[in-house]
Design a protein around this nucleic acid. Sequence first.
DNA 1: AAATCGGGGAC
DNA 2: GTCCCAGATTT
Length: 357
Amino acid sequence: MADSRLFFTERLLEWNQLSNTRTMPWKGEKDPYRIWLSEIILQQTRVEQGLPYYQKFIEHYPTATKLAQAPEEEVFRLWQGLGYYARCKNMLAAAREIATTYKGKFPGNYDQIKALKGIGAYTAAAVASFGFHLPYAVLDGNVYRVLSRYFAIDTPIDSTAGKKQFGDLAQELLPADQSAAYNQSVMDFGAVVCKPQQPNCTACPLNRKCQARQQQLIDVLPVKSKKLQIKKRYFNHFLVEFKDNIYIRKRTGKDIWQNLHEFILIETPEAAELDDLRKNEAFRQLFGKTPFTVINVSAPQKQQLTHQTIHSRFFTLEVKQALPPNDYQLVSRKTLDKYAFPKTITAFLQNKKLQLF
DNA sequence: AAATCGGGGAC
DNA sequence: GTCCCAGATTT
């Protein structure tokens, strides 16, 4: 047992030195701010998807203090399209905490790091090890997969017991004097060799002692217990144009896309046509007796999210007088690019622009 | 303990 | 369609 553990750690470090060809701009980075920024962006996000966002943020905000000074709307606009927008809100709160409480100097203590908004067990270990060479083992999707396979552990990784079991094991495997190199090794190894589908077992430096391989469990490990439910939702967006202005508002509920903006939105339990919506209570409240002209009705478009399928339709309307008082604000068409919108809306705006040419 | 929070790429 | 990605937070 102890033998196979030593083998695991030694082989991974060796693989990292000899065969790890994965390159990323934050690899070997020493600035804890940049390390932290990369980790926040990469939460539940593929490296290729997060990379351009990392570059943008480093350019706009080279230090935590610069980020802390930025207006929230500007930061959200830069985050637009990346998803999981609570990360953006928490990131800004953490930057401001660093700027004030820590006078711009990133805290170098694990508990202080983990106490920052948006930093959980994984990100705290990553920043502590990569930024300060502290002996904390990271536990991300790659680590779960590599450990569950190498040791043939079938405890569900999304259970409380699994989190503790894999977390303890990862920490025991960590060579305290090489925490950064080791953490980097396991994650790269999981991404490049011990992949979710079709892992490269024949070229794997651990295959000789991999328990899942010996027991032919590669394709069933790691085990996940929960299966997700996907709901269908129907969003009817109204681009109501009044002179050169459009009605928008910031989303504030517990729903998706918190802190992003939207046009006038009426959700219906089923797909709806304009004639259905005219009879809709929310629609009647909004428009009252205001006459409107229908400029355009888009084809239905679908967006697949993790927990829901969103069917969207866009109705472009023009009014010659303002709507009765409501929750929305009138903003100039030219300033729309200052606000962050969800992908379903930016995709529509993109298409609309193309149609004009 | 379970539910939620986005968007995209690979299959 | 399904899975899952350098997870965290709320309920």
